[in-house]
């Protein structure tokens, strides 16, 4: 066991534990805090993969902005403990089967097809932020401009949707 492998398993356990906690917590605010744990663990994994800029964006945008928005809405709507009806318990059985089938399908596909990417990864030997920015502003400049338009439309949509109707 080398040091990066131990760090990987610690972060992976943190991420999976946070995801399980998201499922089993009854109160939405606890689910939101569990999701923040998952996101910070994933940021650590990105650092381990040598993607420093993505790790920083993950913490600032996901852990910061998006989750603050979630927690804000949970508090604004005063969301309580969720209730389960008989029907939702009944729907759980096929749901569980379907989720396991999906995970098994993905696992089988990975087991069959990842011989080509077995190559050991070297952390931190690539992915300088300078190369990343050159790529975004040269090769992906039109998609980048489109995302700014997308954000503009999303903000307009959010304002129109959330504004109170005039009586």
């Amino acid at each position: 066991m080398t040091a990066p492998l131990i760090i990987f398993f610690v972060l992976a356990a943190l991420a999976v534990g946070g995801a399980l906690s998201l499922i089993f917590q009854k109160h939405p605010i606890h689910s939101a805090l569990s999701l923040i744990v998952v996101m910070v663990a994933l940021a650590g994994l990105y650092l381990l993969l040598g993607a420093e800029f993505v790790a920083a964006v993950q913490i600032i945008v996901y852990g910061g902005a998006i989750m603050v928005l979630f927690v804000f809405v949970i508090m604004l709507l005063n969301a309580g403990i969720e209730e389960h009806t008989n029907f939702s318990k009944l729907a759980g059985f096929p749901g569980l089967l379907l989720a396991f089938a999906l995970t098994g399908f993905i696992a089988a596909t990975i087991a069959r097809s990842t011989d080509t990417v077995q190559a050991a990864s070297q952390p931190g030997n690539m992915a300088s932020t300078r190369d990343l920015s050159t790529m975004i502003f040269k090769d992906f400049v039109y998609p980048f401009e489109l995302t700014s338009f997308l954000i503009l439309v999303a903000v307009l949509g959010a304002i129109v949707l959330a504004q109170r109707e005039k009586a």
Binding site: A15, V16, A19, L20, L22, I23, S31, V38, E82, E83, H84, S88, A91, G92, G95, L96, L98, A99, F100, L102, T103, I106, A107, I110
Partner: peptide, 15 residues
Amino acid sequence: AILFGLGVLAFIFKR
């Protein structure tokens, strides 16, 4: 894949 499966589970089970 594990995280995605857990996300699907949460999507189905949460009310």
